[in-house]
């Protein structure tokens, strides 16, 4: 077998463009997913049954169906409802953030539930509303605890974003496919793609480690 190192060198700039797009999708999806997840996670702990039920249906539906199917649903089914074609980038981010939101919601729910009940009682007994106590007391403490699982979710999202290649969106994996279609260098290109993913996820996991350590120190003072 010939290993064409030159092919790797030539393709690398193109792959890096794809990697940039992957980072973009991931960043958007994780940010939106974080927002969705925070509200849904809180909603799952609501005392109002309808809010709680809606949140549970959302989480169960998303976690119970494959991301790939969700991407198809958004990209192919949604245009029929709204009556116009959806831009692949919008579809990709929508599907990924809705997906990520459900997992993040469960992380937030667990984090909030892990905070001692006395904290909410102390806040309420001082006359603060439920929302004020959540914002000033519960969420800041919960957030520190959920940094590691959120980091995992971030990494998972980055890898799962490769699935949006099926709707022709040119992120890292799709770029790789296109280059292989032209050059037949599947071994070299897939190896490069894998390597780039590895570098990116490794960077994130170091970042998360750093955040975790910093907050641990913050806790102590």
């Amino acid at each position: 077998m010939n290993f064409d190192f030159d092919l790797i060198v030539r393709s690398f700039p193109l792959l890096l463009v794809g990697a940039g797009v992957t980072v973009q999708i991931t960043a958007f999806s994780v940010s939106l997913g974080l927002l969705i997840g925070m509200f849904v996670g809180i909603a799952r702990l609501s005392n109002t049954w309808i809010i709680k039920a809606l949140a549970a249906v959302y989480v169960d539906f998303i976690r119970g169906t494959p991301l790939l199917v969700q991407i198809f649903l958004i990209y192919f089914a949604l245009p029929i409802i709204v009556g116009q074609r959806i831009d692949p980038f919008i579809a990709a981010i929508t599907a990924c953030s809705i997906n990520s939101g459900a997992y993040v919601a469960e992380i937030f729910r667990g984090g909030i539930q892990s905070i001692d009940k006395g904290q909410m009682e102390a806040g309420r007994s001082l006359g603060m509303t439920w929302g004020q106590t959540m914002r000033h007391i519960i969420l800041p403490q919960a957030f520190k605890r959920i940094i590691p699982p959120l980091g995992n979710e971030f990494i998972a999202m980055m890898k799962d974003s490769s699935l949006v290649s099926v709707i022709g969106f040119e992120e890292l994996t799709r770029r790789g496919q296109l280059i292989i279609a032209r050059t037949y260098g599947s071994f070299e290109i897939w190896l490069s793609v894998a390597f780039i993913y590895l570098i990116m996820t490794f960077t994130i996991s170091r970042l998360v480690d750093y955040l975790e350590r910093r907050y641990k120190i913050d806790d102590k003072h």
């Binding site: 001692d116 009682e121 102390a122 806790d219």
Partner: peptide, 9 residues
């Protein structure tokens, strides 16, 4: 409260 319930953060 018995267990103080100060805000640790």
């Amino acid at each position: 409260f018995q267990r103080f319930n100060l805000f640790p953060h």
